[in-house]
Design a binder for these strands. Structure first.
Length: 489
RNA sequence: GGCCCCGUCGUCCAGCGGCCUAGGACGCCUGCCUUUCAAGCCGGUAACGCGGGUUCGAAUCCCGUCGGGGCCA
């Protein structure tokens, strides 16, 4: 499968016309894995021929998202390499030169067919059930073309597809592909304004950068004959192609903005770990073979095969990503977890944490780590430790209106007040004793305390929370809750 | 409309002619644990789109059909 005569060089070539999305991230990941697996070179190129829609913000996001995912590239934008540039926008002269060379070689021609002519042709072909691919029927002879161009007329350059003919190739993912040339139109390579089309720019780059394997989305599968034809017309050896199945939304259509969050950065911001997203993306269309699903990047790079990639389009399932993220969160070391979470908590609080607050955070975090799915859900769970309490109304209504709530709160206040030592064990001992004296079940007696102390019926473990909160503030909250209960009577 | 691709539990993946009364994971549903929520553990639910072939034998091969998707327009 691997052609040893040619060094392995792959590329990921996003257009900075949007944020790097998860589908692109997966394509990048597979390219990266393939390169790492076979000791190849991974190149990051910027397909920014569309100057109107390309922005610096998107360009920066692509780089940032790639780095965040941990996908480093050996050559390309930012890092450089043997090529003077990896931006298509800076290579227009080269594309124009290739187009004119093709023209000189008779492999391309100036096309004077009007949009109306083309349109009519397509409609008629379609009505007759024939391929709607433009077959060059309005092409004028070279002399006339030269005359008209010399006279100042502007026209796009089209590639002259050989007809009849057929292009075949073995796709690493899809298998043997065969396209009859009647289905391939004489496609434009250089527009009349001198700008290259995607087909030209992308192919010229792949040739110039000596790309050995083109690994990309299935949406480009039907354009592949054009790229092969162009490559060979340039006198170069074609690359090996691998077309990855598309990612879909829950409704089955190609994953897009309307399915909600699709950008890599939105997942980062939503509290997902790069290692989780990366693992999920890898597993989405590829399997390491055994029943393992949690796989490290190194392990993936050891086992990845393009020929093992699934042909089926895959639905991007956020629920499973969340589960996987939880797994990775729990795998984090305690310090690592504090490191990732601290800034989020500080942002939520609107202030920096220092001294005792840091210790408090470190105390409670292990208990929060066990139950988190995304990092962003954490600040609200620890908020009660760092500021004034706010009661969640639903929780209050559900818990504090029940019999025994007042008894429990008062009893806890008394029990904790007398405590000589303040620790999780001491707190637990005192409260359990309190439950017994008042003949309260754990559920009935402890839930009111949870609401009184944390403000919510959902919180980190109670004894740990109280221990972390400290005696003074716990007693304060208990008496505040007592007062609030009394006033409701 | 033309061409191309795909079709195993709700979702993702395994399966590459017999090991399949189809396996794993997420989800969902029980139960256990339990101070809440999670996590963890136990068990369960659920699929080879359909129809023809080929073969001693098909989820696996072939044909058709239906369905979904992509590209071009």
């Amino acid at each position: 499968m691997i052609d040893a005569s040619r060094p392995i060089r792959v590329r990921f070539a996003p257009s900075p016309t949007g944020y790097l999305h998860v589908g692109g991230g997966r394509t990048a990941l597979y390219n990266w894995l393939f390169a790492r697996r076979y000791g190849g070179t991974f190149i990051l190129r910027s397909d920014d021929t569309d100057r109107e829609r390309s922005t610096d913000e998107f360009a920066a996001d692509i780089i940032e998202s790639m780095r965040w995912l941990g996908l480093d590239w050996d050559e390309g934008i930012e890092v450089g390499g043997p090529q003077p540039t990896y931006h298509q926008s800076e290579r227009f002269a080269r594309y124009q030169a290739v187009a004119h060379q093709l023209l000189a070689d008779g492999r391309a021609y100036y096309s004077f067919a009007s949009p109306e002519q083309l349109d009519t042709f397509r409609k008629e072909a379609q009505a007759a059930g024939l391929p709607p691919a433009y077959d060059g029927r309005f092409r004028v002879d070279a002399d006339e073309a030269a005359r008209r161009i010399a006279a100042g007329e502007r026209a796009p350059i089209r590639f002259a597809v050989e007809r009849p003919g057929v292009t075949e190739f073995a796709d690493l993912v899809r298998g043997d592909m065969r396209f009859e040339h009647v289905q391939v139109d004489d496609f434009v390579i250089l527009r009349s304004d001198g700008s290259p089309t995607y087909h030209l720019a992308s192919t010229v780059d792949d040739v110039d950068f000596d790309i050995s394997h083109v690994v990309r989305g299935e949406d480009l599968l039907s354009s592949t004959p054009k790229h092969i034809l162009l490559t060979e017309a340039m006198g170069s050896a074609r690359a090996t192609y691998a077309h990855l199945p598309l990612l879909r939304g829950p409704d089955g259509a190609k994953l897009s903005k309307r399915h909600g969050h699709t950008s890599i950065n939105s997942y980062r911001d939503a509290g997902f770990l790069a290692e989780a997203l990366r693992n999920y993306l890898a597993i989405l269309s590829w399997s390491p073979g055994d029943d393992e699903e949690i796989v490290s990047l190194a392990d993936m790079a050891d086992r990845f095969e393009l020929t093992d990639v699934s042909k089926n389009p895959a639905v991007f399932d956020v629920t499973k990503l969340e589960w996987m993220n939880g797994v990775y969160i729990r795998e984090l070391s305690g310090d690592g977890f504090v490191g990732r979470v601290r800034a989020l908590v500080e942002a939520d609080l609107g202030r920096e944490l220092a001294g005792d607050d840091v210790r408090t955070l470190e105390e409670i975090l292990p208990h929060v780590q066990e139950r988190a799915k995304v990092l962003t859900e954490i600040p609200e769970q620890v908020r009660f430790l760092f500021g004034d309490i706010t009661y969640d109304e639903t929780s209050w209504d559900k818990v504090m209106r029940k019999d025994g709530a007042d008894v429990a709160v008062a009893g806890a206040s008394e029990a904790l007040d007398q405590l000589s030592e303040w620790s999780i064990e001491a707190v637990e001992g005192a409260l359990r004793a309190m439950l017994e004296t008042h003949e309260l079940s754990a559920r009935k007696g402890l839930q009111p305390l949870r609401v009184a102390v944390t403000g919510s019926s959902i919180s980190p473990p109670l004894f740990e929370s109280i221990a972390a909160l400290g005696r003074d503030r716990t007693l304060e909250r208990l008496s505040a809750a007592s007062a609030k209960l009394a006033e409701a009577m």
